[in-house]
Each structure stands twice: as C-alpha cells, then as structure tokens.
C-alpha cells in the first residue's frame, strides 16, 4: 500500500529525514517511535503533503502511484488521512459543514453522489456514538475552543467519517488522559480491517498498549535504526531511546 524508499525531507533548508525506508501492506499497523527531534512528525507531515516539508530525495508510492506528485487534497481524496498532532482551529467554519464538505469532496472524487443533509446527519450520528462525540461539537467552529482531548477525538471522528485506506496518526496520544486515550484507541481499533493500514507515530509506548502494532520502527536522527515486532515497544519503554541513538552501540550488544 505504502512504499517509501530512501526518503529525504528538509524543513527550512535543514535535512531532517536522511533516507527512510518503510513498507506498509494493507491491514498492517506500523508504529513509528523515536526521541524528540528524530523526524517522526516530519515523516507524517511530508506524507500528507505539508508545503513546509520539502522532499529532497527518495520516493513514496501509494498503491503504486507517486504519492509525492499529488497535491495534499488529492492525497486525502485518494484515501490518505493524517490525524494532526496539532489540529488547527478555524474560526467561523462550522464543524458539521466542514465534515460534510470533506466527505462530499471524496465522494465526488470517486463518482459517488454527494450526501444530502439528512443522509449526512444519519451517518454522523452513527459515527459520533463510537467516539463519544457530543452533537454540539458539530455546530461549533472547527476545533475552536475545543479541549486537547476534544481536538484529538475530532481528528479520529473525521477519520471514521472519511474511511481512508491509509491513516497516519501523528502523536495522537499526546496530551490525552487515560479516558480520552481509550476512546481514541477504540475508535482506531474499530476501524482496523484487512484493507486498511495505519502508521502510528508516537513518542510513548503507552498508546501501543491500546493500539497494538504489527511492527515497530525506531527513528533516530532521520533514519530508521531498528525495526521489530510489538515487543520492541516494551523494550524501549524499559531502556529508553539512548541505546539506539544513531552512532552509539546498543548497551550489552
């Protein structure tokens, strides 16, 4: 589904990702872990097409197509979804109106009829229940005045609505209390299926207790320095990232 080869990304002229390889097949959940500044979020944002993240080398293909050649909105319509680490507050844009526009943009893209207000509300009600989204959140401006937990739930709610093929979660767990973390994780787990893949970017192992990954990759100084199964996350929890920092030898190895 997603094939990344030797991806290099610069931000404001500084090379952050120095050659990342990643292969994600449908149905898989990949966790990307790493210390602060290792390039985790840069990877997520570059894949979503953020204009400040400049790809300087390598490639990324989504279902065989050149992902990097697509505009951010085309990536989204094709089925790549990024849950933002810092969801943006947009004053004056009604959340429900925004969600309907996003959903219909995707439906139009695939030649499906747009949903009318009734059909949309029905769908919303269904999805909102799972994520414990209060109906009032729909009538407020997008993310405006939302608590940290509400913002993250709103991201996952959008994901549930847009049903992407590939979802990239950028530190979705940061700032969440345990209750909110459960709600968000349930939302994600409820969407796991053989056709859908997840890339979960996180600093902490805690999230992976709830969203159990198939693979864990450790990013350090812009490169993946170690990959393994879910047990790697536990090892990191115990030992920290120090032993994996690029250029240092693993302790006891």
């Amino acid at each position: 589904m997603l094939e990344i080869k030797n991806l290099q990304v610069a931000v404001e002229g500084n090379l952050i990702l120095k050659g990342v390889d990643l292969h994600v097949k449908p149905g898989e959940v990949h966790a990307i872990m790493g210390p602060n500044g290792s390039g985790k979020s840069t990877l997520a944002r570059a894949l979503s097409g953020h204009p400040q993240y400049e790809v300087t080398g390598g490639e990324a293909r989504f279902e065989g197509r050149d992902l990097l050649d697509m505009d951010p909105d085309e990536r989204a319509r094709e089925g790549v979804f990024m849950a933002f680490q810092y969801p943006v507050e947009i004053a004056g844009v009604n959340n429900g109106y925004f969600l309907k526009a996003a959903l219909n943009a995707k439906r139009k893209h695939f030649g499906q009829p747009e949903l009318d207000a009734m059909e949309f509300m029905q769908l919303i009600r269904e999805k909102a229940k799972v994520l414990q989204i209060d109906q009032s959140m729909l009538s407020r401006s997008v993310n405006e005045g939302f608590s940290g937990g509400e913002k993250k739930r709103n991201e996952i709610f959008q994901m549930a609505l847009l049903e992407p093929k590939l979802a990239i979660l950028d530190e979705t767990d940061s700032g969440l209390d345990i209750d909110a973390l459960r709600v968000v994780s349930d939302g994600v787990n409820g969407m796991r299926n053989p056709g859908r893949a997840f890339v979960v970017v996180t600093h902490y192992q805690r999230l992976l207790d709830y969203i159990v990954p198939d693979y864990v990759h450790v990013l350090s100084a812009g490169r993946i320095v170690k990959s393994g199964g879910k047990e790697l996350a536990h090892e990191l929890e115990k030992k920290g990232y120090g032993w994996l920092e690029a250029g240092t030898q693993p302790v006891g190895a």
Binding site: D71, D73, A76, M82, F84, F98, A105, L162
Partner: peptide, 22 residues
C-alpha cells in the same frame, strides 16, 4: 488552516473560499 482543509480533501480554491466566507 488552508493546509488543514486541503488535508481533508478540499481543493486549494474550495479551502480558500471556505476561509474567506468564514
């Protein structure tokens, strides 16, 4: 805000119009 809307599938023009209207 423009990028956020585009990341949800709205074109640059749709996103811009939505923000101006807001």
């Amino acid at each position: 805000a423009l990028f956020y809307l585009r990341a949800r599938g709205l074109t640059h023009f749709e996103a811009r119009d939505m923000l101006i209207h807001a």
